[in-house]
Computed example of a mutant assay.
Amino acid sequence: MKHAINACALALILAGYVSAPPARAQTRQPAPVQRTAPPIPVRPAMGPRGLEAVMGKDVATLKRLFGEPRLDVVEVHGRKLQFVGKACVLDVFLYPDGKGRTEIVTYVDARRSDGAAVDRASCIDALQRR
């Protein structure tokens, strides 16, 4: 009996040194996230003050105003036209409107040929006069 008590005591002492394997935390897979592209702007994204000649206009109107563009880049959701004159370079960005899907101007950027910023309205005016 003495040996049985000693064996039990030894077993209890050894059991204290051995740790149980760590419990696994239940992990859940996150639900799949559906990502969609942001909606395409259908109205001019900036105020038209001084830009009335181009904001909301289509490609045909721009070509009548400025002639043939130096660049005509068709992108996934829109189009970029670039017109160049002595005074400046004008980048015009067109996106489909919500109704007939006609591409209209929603943003305009202007710069000098060296990259320095130029007033957009002044650039539009200069390109119309050439």
Rank of each mutant, 00 (worst) to 15 (best):
A9T: 09
L10H: 05
L10E: 08
L10N: 06
L10T: 12
A11S: 08
A11Y: 05
A11L: 14
L12E: 03
L14N: 08
A15G: 13
G16H: 07
Y17V: 13
Y17E: 04
S19H: 13
S19Y: 14
A25N: 13
T27A: 15
T27R: 12
R28W: 07
Q29W: 05
A31H: 06
R35V: 10
A37V: 08
A37P: 09
P38M: 07
P39Y: 09
I40T: 07
P41E: 02
A45F: 02
M46N: 02
P48I: 07
P48Q: 05
P48C: 06
R49V: 11
G50D: 02
G50C: 00
L51Q: 00
A53K: 04
M55A: 04
G56L: 06
D58P: 15
A60S: 08
L62K: 09
R64A: 00
R64H: 09
L65G: 05
F66S: 00
G67Q: 01
E68N: 12
E75H: 11
E75I: 05
H77S: 11
H77L: 04
G78L: 02
K80E: 00
F83S: 06
F83I: 01
V89Q: 06
V89K: 14
D91K: 15
Y95V: 13
Y95F: 15
P96D: 08
P96N: 13
D97T: 12
D97M: 12
G98I: 11
K99A: 12
K99S: 07
G100T: 14
E103I: 04
E103N: 13
I104K: 14
I104S: 10
I104N: 05
V105L: 03
T106C: 07
V108Y: 02
R111S: 10
A117D: 02
A117V: 08
V118Y: 06
D119K: 15
R120Q: 05
A121G: 14
A121P: 11
A121W: 03
C123W: 06
I124A: 05
A126T: 11
L127M: 07
